[in-house]
Amino acid sequence: MTDNTEAIHISNVHVQYKQSDKPTLNIEHLLISQGERIALVGSSGSGKTTLLRLINGYLRPKSGSLHILGEEMTARHARRRDLRRRVAFVFQGFNLVERASVFENVLWGRLGYVGTLASIVGGFTEKDKQIALSVIQEVDLLDQIEQRCDTLSGGQQQRVGIARALAQEPDIILADEPVSSLDPGLADDVLQLLLNVSVARSATLLMSLHQPDLARQYAQRIIALQSGQIVFDGKAEDFTDAEIKHIYRQEPTTMSEIV
């Protein structure tokens, strides 16, 4: 399933928010190959979102190096925009423009490919529109294509979010708690969809999940974070109940340390 090209390569990266004196994220080494499907677990505040935002280019590392798709992601990278559009992000709260239609929201996922002047006057190309259309079909929302997003259910809105991510023609798909605002039944549908679309593109999928069970079910590899450090990194089948207990039980003590 995986080839040997590097999707994400992190070494000695420290991220620290200004307010706190403890590093939010502290990763010595993390290598993810293209096409891997990984679940990121750990309790709230363990650094899952920070890691995803770092890979996404939303945060910049204070020190260390971060390579995405073989290129170093730096603050003033000339091809930063190039790189960012190849990394798609699916959000917990969907982050759609609610009064815009399904089609518009998905089409705007193409903005990274459109020139500034052209996009201000709405100059998306026929190709952009075709891509939007085909990914909307892929997430099975063609019937709702003209509907405003605020009229859709939570599950449908997350499918729009996934379609918008796919419109970027991504090599890497990041998902931050993609199902934690959804009913359990819908969660399975959405995770299955994320899995299918990633496999179809042999894209790398890295998603943070709150429930360890879902992680074991939908990922090949599991990375567990605790207080900003990687405490488990291995095959999904090796992520035993004992590991889970260990990771989630440890957290309260570290929380009190922070306070």
Binding site: N56, R81, A88, F89, F91, N95, L96, W108, G161
Partner: peptide, 14 residues
């Protein structure tokens, strides 16, 4: 939220 989403899609400031 939507701003962050477009940002991550590679959209520029304008």
């Amino acid at each position: 939220g939507p701003l962050e989403a477009l940002d991550s899609a590679g959209a520029n400031w304008w």
